[in-house]
Nucleic acid binder design. Structure first.
Length: 778
DNA sequence: CATTATCGGGG
DNA sequence: GTGTACGATAATG
């Protein structure tokens, strides 16, 4: 069997953990009431223990009190000390009483979510095959014994889910009025669409409610352990809950669904089902210019799928001759989601196993959180107290202090051909290990020969907590890479996921040390790492130059070198030489070859590979509140530069666009600006153009609400932008503010690329440069 | 210059 | 859930 999820409930006087288990083909729940919530505290007052024991508080007509207090010894900051271990009945009693307790003692481990606490204390392995000893009590199975790992490796049942909704209005659908018209699922290559209009390619129901019930019956029958969605946290799941409750559907999927977070950025889960939202995972782990499902499917999996513009979906639903196209589109969305899931789930599973927390949490965690959970686990296993997170004052001051970051070579600006991209990926982990960098080894009084370029000394006699964990991770990764050799299929996939997960974790330690919210924050450590890093990358840059490479750009751990022709042997030779000279686990890798690149400034460049695939860093900004003309012009400029290597051509292109704008040759739809209303109109302190229009439309009795997208044009005039805007719906021709469209839309979009290459705004604007020189002349 | 507001993904 | 995102950019104040 395999434990794939867990949560807790209050049952009578006890807190009971529910472990969700896959056994053979079925799912079951095992209960555990043997773990009490607790925190630690260090007494400030000789009577602290008695005073804390006597604490009592009435909150919401419930009596909250401490269950008991024990005296314990724990290691904290390298010393064994006396602490109080304070027990509670329920996890939510902790926040009720912790301020009171703080009056008598300094509290520790008071903010560790209960399920985390449980998994930590009991060492329950998640997603690892186990045998669990249980006994039956009150017709429920109770966990009694430690788990034993077994060799059996059951697969979790995975299903993807996607919904389509009906929405005529501008903006995103509103669950209060816009119904769900289709629900699609995919399991492997099988897929299915539930809908409520006649179609031969879907399972048809009489209305939305019965369609939802049909879907839920299917869900019960298949009972997946894992549901993958694309942005289900913020859209599909909350939408289903809302519509389901409105219809009075009583099903755990509807009634027990928990939506955490507010407004945007939710986390949505259903007890006993692991909801993996692929959108945040893909965004964190793959570099793309856009993250629409369609883009990810094409750029990451190399597959096409049909696309229907969101605002037009209702038309496909209303027109019986188009309905099947919508059914197909919906089905393809579910299939694409499933396939992306197949690629990303091994990583999510392996991260889950390494940090041993719930897959739901792990799949949504930042890499700094993952590192922290790993450190917490190790710290706990060492019998030490977990350091507290920073207080809000400490946090503020941490955010204020900055330090010198990585070495970034100012790029040779312009277009370069035949670029090899070297990556120094394990640079920072290697530095941390070889120099034993840790908040607790810094500035010891016993060593003098391990001093960072910033002047901090790190102890060589005592291995640091962080370097030791990091070293284990890297060794582990090397073992996995050995095992991968000769493996195929599922075994390979799982190992690949494992080494990927380990790499992500190892590469996050530096960031963790410099991240202000970290429990093991150490600015001095972080800046010593970057200082040593600058030293190493510089030595590699020097070596590259010595061998006749043109170093075009370098940042932190990466190096772009230009060669007259693509000479892979030369690149490999250089790599081998460098790697024999580098210490320990430090390794330079040849990550790729690009036939052309344009380097603009630090952190801003675009590259094109031999398959004409373009990747950009820091340049492209695609936003809904940009006009079509700005987006199109930026895209054309990047493409012109990379595909034709023609900067002059790009300048001409921009000049032509500005001319077209001045001569009113640009279609009006390319000049429309779309901006969303995000709060009630009365709450706005700054009245932007879209708010001004929204207020006017509301006056006229139009349906304007939170979520409405206002589409407007900017008319010729003077003063603030909001004083010269008009809703697209009311535009009947008339002079548009060509200057605004040029100065505030098109030029800013292309300036970020062309200006650092030596061109001025005036060079890009039609007639401008000529006029300026003429004026001078006369 | 400081403050306020919007973007992303989803239909 | 014993934890509430973020970094960049534009317009107003």
């Amino acid at each position: 069997m395999i434990i794939y999820d867990c949560d807790y409930i209050a049952m009578g006087e006890k807190t009971v953990v529910r472990l969700y288990i896959r056994e053979g083909d079925s799912t079951k729940i095992i209960y555990d009431d043997s773990h009490e919530p607790y925190i630690y505290a260090e007494a400030l007052d000789p009577d602290a223990s008695a005073k804390i024991t006597d604490l009592i508080k009435v909150s919401n007509e419930k009596v909250v009190q401490v269950v008991r207090v024990e005296d314990v010894k724990r290691v904290y900051q390298n010393k064994e000390r006396d602490f109080l271990k304070i027990f509670f009945r329920y996890p939510f009693d902790v926040p009720e009483l912790r301020d009171e307790i703080s009056k008598y003692a300094k509290i520790f481990e008071y903010d560790i979510p209960y399920v985390r606490r449980y998994l930590l204390d009991k060492s329950i392995p998640i997603l690892t095959p186990v045998d669990v000893h249980t006994e039956e009590r009150d017709k429920k199975e109770y966990f009694i014994d430690a788990v034993k790992t077994t060799a059996e490796e059951p697969q979790l049942r995975v299903m993807s889910l996607d919904i389509e909704t009906y929405c005529v209005n501008k903006g995103m659908p509103d669950a209060k009025k816009d119904p769900i018209i289709m629900i699609s699922v995919a399991i492997g290559t099988d897929s299915k669409v539930f809908c409520w209009k006649k179609s031969d390619n879907a399972e048809v129901f009489k209305d939305e409610k019965s369609m939802m019930e049909g879907f839920l019956a299917y869900l019960d029958e298949f009972s997946p352990q894992v549901i993958v969605t694309y942005n289900g946290d913020n859209f599909d799941f909350p939408y289903i809950k809302k519509r389901g409750s409105m219809h009075g559907i009583s099903h755990p999927f509807i009634t027990h669904m928990k939506i955490q977070g507010r407004g945007q950025h939710n986390r949505t889960e259903v007890p006993g089902m692991v909801h993996i939202d692929l959108f945040p995972i893909v965004r964190k782990n793959i570099n793309l210019s856009r993250y629409k499902l369609e883009n990810v499917y094409k750029e990451y999996l190399g597959k096409d799928k049909s696309d229907i513009e969101g605002s037009k979906i209702w038309q496909y639903w209303d027109d019986p001759s188009l309905l099947d196209e919508l059914v197909l589109y919906s089905k393809e969305d579910a299939v694409a989601t499933y396939e992306i899931g197949e690629q990303m789930l091994p990583l999510a599973y392996e991260l889950t196993k390494i940090v041993n927390q719930r897959p739901f949490d792990v799949s949504r965690a930042s890499s700094s959180s993952l590192v922290e959970w790993l450190l917490i686990r190790q710290c706990h296993e060492n019998g030490e107290l977990i350091p507290n997170p920073p207080s809000s004052e400490a946090l503020k001051s941490r955010y204020r202090q900055t330090y010198e970051g990585a070495y970034v070579v100012e790029p040779i600006r312009g277009i370069h051909d035949n670029i090899f991209y070297f990556d120094f990926r394990s640079l920072y982990p290697s530095i941390i290990i070889s120099h034993n960098i840790d908040p607790n080894t810094i500035d010891c009084d016993c060593c003098v020969d391990n001093i960072s370029p910033t002047g901090h000394c790190f102890c060589k006699k005592r291995e640091g907590f962080i370097p030791s964990i990091l070293e284990d991770l890297l060794k582990w990764r090397m073992r996995i890479k050995e095992k991968m050799k000769g493996k195929t299929g599922l075994a390979y996939k799982s190992l690949y996921g494992q080494q990927w997960a380990l790499k992500i974790l190892a590469n996050s330690f530096y960031g963790y040390l410099g991240y202000p919210r970290s429990r093991w924050y150490s600015k001095e450590s972080a800046e010593s790492i970057t200082a040593w890093g600058r030293k190493y990358i510089n030595s590699v840059i020097d070596a590259a130059k010595e061998r006749g490479f043109d170093v075009v750009y370098g940042d932190t751990d990466s190096l772009f070198v230009r060669t007259p022709v693509k000479d892979e042997d030369k690149a490999r030779l250089f790599l081998d030489e460098i790697n024999t000279s580098l210490p320990g686990s430090m390794e330079l890798e040849l990550e790729g070859f690009y036939k052309r690149g344009v380097f603009v400034t630090k952190k801003k460049y675009a590259l094109i590979d031999e398959d004409n695939k373009i990747i950009t860093k820091g340049l492209e900004v695609v936003r809904r509140d940009w006009t079509g003309i700005a987006k199109k012009t930026q895209e054309a400029v990047i493409s012109k530069i990379l595909k034709e290597g023609d900067i002059k051509g790009a300048i001409d292109l921009v000049q032509n666009v500005t001319r077209d704008i001045k001569e009113n040759k640009v279609p009006v739809e390319d000049l429309v600006i779309n901006t969303q209303i995000t709060m009630p109109l009365s709450q706005y302190k700054a009245i932007g153009p879209h708010v001004k229009i929204a207020k006017e439309l509301k006056e006229k009795g139009e349906d304007v609400r939170v979520g409405t997208i206002v589409s407007y044009l900017v008319l010729k005039g003077s003063g603030l932008i909001r004083d010269k805007v008009i809703p697209v719906s009311e535009y009947k021709g008339g002079a548009l503010d060509t200057n605004y469209y040029i100065k505030n839309q098109v030029l800013p979009a292309v300036k970020r690329i062309l200006e650092p290459l030596g061109y001025k705004e005036d060079d890009m604007e039609y007639n401008k440069s000529k006029q300026a020189s003429l004026e001078k002349w006369f």
